[in-house]
Simulated scan of single mutants.
Amino acid sequence: MFISFFIVSAYLIGSLSFAVIVSRLFGLPDPRKHGSGNPGATNMLRTGRKSAALLTLVGDMAKGWLAVYLARYFGSQYGVEIAATYGAAVAVFLGHLYPLFFGFKGGKGVATALGILLAISPWLGLATLASWLVVFVLTRISSLAALTAATLAPVLGTYLIGGALPVVALCIISALIFWRHRTNIRRLLAGEEGRFAKPADTSSE
Rank of each mutant, 00 (worst) to 15 (best):
L129H: 05
A113I: 08
V134W: 00
A127S: 15
G95M: 08
A113F: 08
E81F: 10
L126H: 04
F101T: 01
G87P: 03
L133K: 02
G87H: 04
F104W: 15
G109Y: 11
A119Q: 02
A91L: 04
G95E: 13
L133M: 12
A89R: 12
A84H: 01
V134R: 02
A83Y: 11
H96L: 10
A88R: 07
G95S: 05
K105C: 04
Y86W: 15
W123P: 00
F93T: 12
L114E: 07
A113W: 01
G95I: 08
A127Y: 14
A91F: 09
G107M: 09
L114F: 15
F102D: 11
I120N: 07
G95W: 06
L118W: 11
G87K: 06
T128Q: 05
A113E: 12
T85H: 00
F93D: 05
A91D: 03
A113H: 09
V110K: 07
I120D: 10
G115Y: 00
A91N: 04
G125R: 03
S121D: 14
L97D: 03
G95N: 06
I116R: 11
L100M: 08
A83V: 14
Y98Q: 09
A91Q: 10
A88F: 10
F101N: 00
G95T: 13
W132G: 00
V90L: 13
G103D: 14
G115S: 03
L126Q: 06
G109V: 11
F101D: 01
G95P: 10
L118F: 15
P122H: 09
A130C: 07
G87A: 01
L114G: 13
L129N: 00
L117Q: 03
A89L: 11
V92P: 00
G125P: 12
G103R: 15
E81D: 15
G125W: 09
G109P: 06
A119H: 04
A111F: 07
A111T: 04
I120G: 10
P99I: 00
A127K: 04
I116N: 12
A113K: 14
F102T: 12
